[in-house]
Design a protein around this nucleic acid. Structure first.
Length: 213
DNA sequence: TCATTAACACGGG
DNA sequence: CCCGTGTTAATGA
């Protein structure tokens, strides 16, 4: 892979020797929005460094209900994938491209090697664990203690945030599936949020009024 | 009280 | 016509 590509995107994270190694060992991949990169039960051979775009990481319960764990954005990597690498287990997660996304795929065998060899890699991995753990705690808090209306609004704000736009292109049906609830509830709550002036909505498109970022 | 399920009407593409 | 949306009625937790 082209070293300057890695250089341009990851030099702020890693030392030059590691950049060179990533260039040698990694492969670049691009995914379209909606592309499934990894499914539950699949063996993991690579782990991703996100260069551009964003990935959505989910798990699933016995009834087949999906639960959103977190989003990965530029400079992020996937703590769940890391955990699976170290144990050599199969994936407990599903990873889908949220929008057009570029990643660098690194063979899992380099993981442990680089942890010993490179301070910047070690810090990166620990830091990634830390961030992902915090996001999961947020997700749990959200599920356990917040009502649906707050969850919906937070969901919409998160979506807007990762798109980098106040506009969210989705449907009530999709949102209902993501939040594990019924479409009719989303419609009702959306109406409520609209009346409060927090959002405005058209068919297939929702604007977040107080979007910043 | 609020979610869920099913059913129906409306309108835009 | 199909799909997304808004609404209602019955039922359940």
């Amino acid at each position: 892979m082209n070293p300057t590509y890695i250089q341009n995107h990851l030099s702020h994270l890693f030392e030059p020797e590691l950049i060179a190694e990533i260039s040698r060992e990694g492969t670049q991949a691009s995914f379209k929005a909606g592309h499934e990169i990894l499914d539950i039960g699949q063996p993991i051979r690579h782990f991703p460094l996100v260069i551009k775009g964003s990935l959505k990481v989910m798990t699933e319960n016995e009834e087949g209900h999906e639960l959103l764990l977190y989003y990965l954005e530029m400079g992020d990597t996937c703590a769940m994938t890391l955990q699976c690498c170290l144990n050599d287990t199969k994936s407990k997660i599903r990873v889908v491209a949220e929008d057009a996304t570029d990643v660098v795929l690194i063979p899992i065998k380099r993981m442990e090697e680089w942890i010993v060899k490179y301070g910047s890699w070690r810090r990166f991995i620990f830091n990634s664990y830390h961030e992902r753990l915090n996001e999961m705690l947020d997700a749990i808090d959200n599920l356990a203690f917040q009502n649906l209306e707050d969850r919906l609004y937070k969901y919409l704000k998160d979506k807007a945030m990762i798109n980098g736009s106040a506009e969210v292109k989705t449907t009530h049906r999709e949102i209902a599936a993501e939040l594990n609830t019924a479409r009719v509830v989303i419609s009702r709550l959306m109406k409520k949020l609209e009346q409060q002036g927090k959002i405005s909505s058209d068919r297939n498109c929702i604007q977040i009024t107080e979007f910043v970022g």
